[in-house]
Write a protein that binds this DNA or RNA. Structure first.
Lengths: 130, 130
DNA sequence: CGGGATTTTGCGAATAGTTCGCAAATGAGG
DNA sequence: CCTCATTTGCGAACTATTCGCAAAATCCCG
């Protein structure tokens, strides 16, 4: 009976490796370009399918950028945290913050609003870009 | 000499009126459908152009939804605040919160990160949907 | 209220990002 | 090394959004 398989293939390894070395959100097209630069010939379709696959496994986080283009980054959603995104270079730094969590909790109480999640992003310039 | 004009037209009034009565983020297509329902025949191009126009005036806020489709809502960005979005009906409630601002400020100090902005969204169920 | 300069609209075509179908290639396991 | 399920590549299809241009609407001023 078909228990879903999960093949390890070159394209998947290459794509994961691109994501692994870039601490920023990349679009499918950017990943595809990165593969070409590395001399790895992978179709854009496969990039999209692999990204869906990685997302399904919970290995990457997707986020539409300001223009609506979807971008992806290696990021365990298990350990809850937020992001600080550099406006200049796009570098993403994790912001793990108990105070923020606590604040969100307190909001749950107020408002007739049953809070079950939140998304927080900080923008600015990272140390290197200042 | 051409100081930019700003014509008041039926399409623009109709579109603004749709936005004015919906406390949630709507896509261009949804707005277009709303216009048709009202018997107002406006082209989709005009919907997009009017949304750009309103955004330029600072009358509406745009936000790509989870799938990357851009959605719009009447919302003065002048008074800084955040949103609580109902997972069931999409209703958006404003969350004006000094504590959050203060928290963001404190983050500016830590990290080598020069914070110049942030985006916060809360998700859950509004009173009506619980 | 009428005329003319300027802006806006509608339409259809063009673009960009993403998905899909299907045959060929690849990985897992015996 | 053989077989079978999964994955890939390709090109076509789709969807959201933008654009060019001629026609229509708006504004302003007399």
């Amino acid at each position: 009976m078909g228990l879903r398989a999960d093949y390890v293939t070159r394209p998947r390894e290459w794509i994961a490796s691109i994501l692994a070395r870039e601490p920023r959100f990349l679009s499918a097209a950017q990943i595809h370009q990165g593969l070409e630069r590395d001399g790895a010939r992978v179709s854009l379709s496969t990039v999209y399918r692999t990204l869906d696959h990685l997302q399904g496994k919970g290995d990457i986080t997707a986020r539409p950028d300001a223009d609506g283009e979807v971008t992806y980054m290696l990021c365990e959603p298990s350990r809850h945290h937020h992001h600080a995104i550099c406006r200049t270079c796009g570098r993403v730094e994790d912001v793990d913050c108990a105070a923020m969590e606590q604040f969100a909790e307190s909001l749950r109480a107020r408002n007739g609003f049953e809070l079950d999640g939140h998304a927080i992003e900080f923008f600015g310039k990272c140390g290197a870009c200042r």
